[in-house]
Design a protein around this nucleic acid. Structure first.
Lengths: 231, 231
DNA sequence: GGACCACTTTGTCCTTCAGCAAACTTGCGG
DNA sequence: CCGCAAGTTTGCTGAAGGACAAAGTGGTCC
């Protein structure tokens, strides 16, 4: 593994305001690792031995029910910490992390968590803000699941992915990682069949254009209408 | 308001391990307040000026959708901190808190949050553990909503309330605060009608006994079966 | 180039549960 | 003690969407 460059961390929220030497030190203790699409990074229930920072790619955080069904809890984008069980005094991971696309992540042993939070003021603050945001998102998903119809939930899920990872292409905005119908159904609590039907309908209406594992949203504003209070 | 007694806080997780003089100091800065059933303690979106500790009673934390529907996010029991937006660097409350029964709570201005967390080691740790648990519960609710049928969700909601606040009576275990059918429907994402039908059926089966705003679970084990993978 | 595999599409049926409506019960305030 | 409000029960109907089935379509590996 080649020597890591400091520019990797410079400007990332958790490490902003740090001096070059500090970043060097943090980096020297990091273990970089590449993950293929579909590769597991850590598993629900296992001992939380390391915490992670995603540098490139996208991560799906997944929970499995006793019935064997999977629920996608959230997606991680580059620059975000994940698997930060130590922040909440947990000693096992509460969910499984899987690379949604080919990804690169750094990780540190949990014992460094305490060191980082005390040594670098911004680090703790930033981490807990992240947690706060995630809590808010989960709130939103709960109210969505509790009050909205399937069509609205699927529209909202697409918009969330677009917002988090959308990149401009000439047709519209493309979700930057592979997504299957099944994936979407696991984000919205429905079946892949229903998702397929919805996407087909939207395709016909010119709202989205989707190929095998890729989705381009061509009319985001119409999707917003579908996701909102009334269509 | 009469002088507060130190025994109020002694032994409560957030303040365990503290010396008498420290507890005295904390208590002297606290504002105690009594709330009638249904009274609002703070409102979603308002400036988070204080954080709270529930001493007696039960609090419902509620989120309102644009459509005006309410979703009950969680219940707070005595001894728990709530409205701890500052822990996540939020400056507004993410939800509304309402007394589910007559309640007594202490509160402190948010500026003391930093002081408490730095001065009293156990305080921060304990607070973040609480947050971790809540995050876990929300996860569970999301998977429930996404994968389980209404009957299972309602059974699970009753069990959750029983676990959190159940007190033994001769018929079985009673939920310690008033709960209406509508409340349950707001916890489970269904309608009060459906909840009413379920409770009636369970009453006939001898699983619960419910009066107007009170529920006694007479056969918890059967409820567990209903909430589980298969009924 | 062919075979297999993963993903998708589409059709049909059937259950669950939300929506609507209306009567009933309980408790409280005057 | 009466009237009203809040909470509950119950019936009926219809639509949403899950379950099952089966065929279509890329993509990839040999």
């Amino acid at each position: 593994m080649s020597k890591l460059d400091e520019s990797l961390l410079t400007g990332l929220p958790p490490f902003s305001l740090l001096e070059r030497s500090q970043i060097r030190e943090i980096l020297d203790q990091a273990l970089p690792k590449r993950y293929d699409e579909g590769a597991e990074i850590f598993h629900e229930g296992h001992d939380a031995e390391r915490f992670h920072l995603l540098l490139d790619g996208y991560i799906r955080v997944v929970k499995t029910t006793e019935g064997g069904e999977q629920i996608i809890a959230l997606h991680i984008s580059p620059g975000q910490l994940f698997g930060i069980a130590p922040a909440l005094n947990r000693d096992t991971y509460p969910a499984t992390a899987i690379a949604a696309s080919e990804s690169l992540a750094l990780s540190w042993p949990v014992r460094l968590w305490g060191e980082f939070t005390t040594k670098y003021p911004g680090f703790a603050t930033e981490s807990y803000s992240t947690l706060g945001q995630r809590l808010g998102e989960m709130q939103t998903r709960i109210t969505e699941l509790a009050t909205q119809a399937v069509e609205q939930r699927v529209a909202a899920a697409l918009l969330r992915m677009v917002t988090q990872s959308g990149r401009k292409v000439d047709e519209g905005i493309e979700i930057a990682f592979p997504v299957t119908r099944r994936n979407i159904s696991e984000m919205t609590g429905t079946t892949l069949h229903t998702v397929s039907r919805l996407l087909s309908a939207w395709e016909k209406d010119g709202i989205v254009h989707s190929t095998r594992k890729h989705i381009v949203v061509t009319a985001p504003h119409r999707l917003v209408l579908l996701s909102g209070a009334q269509g």
